[in-house]
C-alpha cells in the first residue's frame, strides 16, 4: 500500500509557541549542532491605496502534500540533515500572524541553513497553495509569488 504523504497543513495561524516547543523537543538530540528556521508572517501590504488585513490560504491539498514529499526527499538527498519540520497555514491568517514554518536541524550549521533556504524557495515555487489578500474594509485580490 502506498504510504500517505505527510500533511503540512494546519488550520489557522501557526502559534509562536510552536517554535519554543520544537526547540525543546530537540534538546535531547545531542548530535544536533544547529537549527535553521524560517517563519513566514503575513504582511500588511499596501496595494493601490488599500491595505491587506489578512490572507486567506487555500490549497490543492493532495497535490501539495505529494509535491512537498518530493521536495523533502530532494532536501534529504542534497543536505545532511538530522530532521526537518514544515507547516503551512490554511484559512484566514491576519496580518502579523505566522503562516509558514520551516525548521531544519543538522550537525553543522551550513547544511541546515542551505536546506531551509531550499525548502522555502521550492515550496513557494512548486506547491499549489493559493492566497486571497483581504483588504481593510472590503475587497480582495489574489496573491502571486515573486
Amino acid at each position: 500500500m502506498k504510504k500517505k504523504p505527510k500533511n503540512i497543513f494546519v488550520e489557522g495561524a501557526i502559534p509562536p509557541e510552536k517554535l519554543a516547543t520544537s526547540v525543546a523537543n530537540h534538546q535531547d538530540r545531542t548530535n544536533i549542532g544547529a537549527h535553521s528556521i524560517f517563519l513566514g508572517q503575513v504582511r500588511a501590504d499596501e496595494i493601490d491605496g488599500k491595505v491587506v488585513e489578512a490572507i486567506e490560504f487555500s490549497a490543492y491539498e493532495e497535490m501539495a502534500n505529494e509535491t512537498y514529499a518530493a521536495i523533502r526527499e530532494e532536501v534529504f538527498e542534497k543536505f545532511d540533515l538530522t530532521c526537518a519540520h514544515v507547516y503551512h497555514s490554511l484559512g484566514t491568517i491576519p496580518v502579523g500572524q505566522l503562516c509558514f514554518y520551516v525548521f531544519t536541524s543538522s550537525q553543522r550549521r551550513k547544511q541546515a541553513m542551505a536546506a531551509t533556504e531550499y525548502f522555502v524557495e521550492e515550496i513557494k515555487k512548486r506547491v499549489p497553495i493559493f492566497g486571497k489578500e483581504l483588504f481593510e474594509g472590503e475587497g480582495h485580490q489574489w496573491k502571486v509569488n515573486s
Binding site: 490560504f57 490543492y60 493532495e62 497535490m63 503551512h88 509558514f100 515550496i123 512548486r126 497553495i129 509569488n145
Partner: peptide, 24 residues
C-alpha cells in the same frame, strides 16, 4: 496531480486548473 504542458488526458483523470501559486 502532476503539472502537464502537453500529453493525453484519459477517462477518469483528475485535472486541476491552477492559478499562480502564493504559498509561503
Amino acid at each position: 496531480r502532476k503539472i502537464c504542458t502537453n500529453g493525453p488526458v484519459s477517462e477518469g483523470d483528475e485535472v486541476a486548473i491552477l492559478p499562480p501559486f502564493a504559498g509561503g
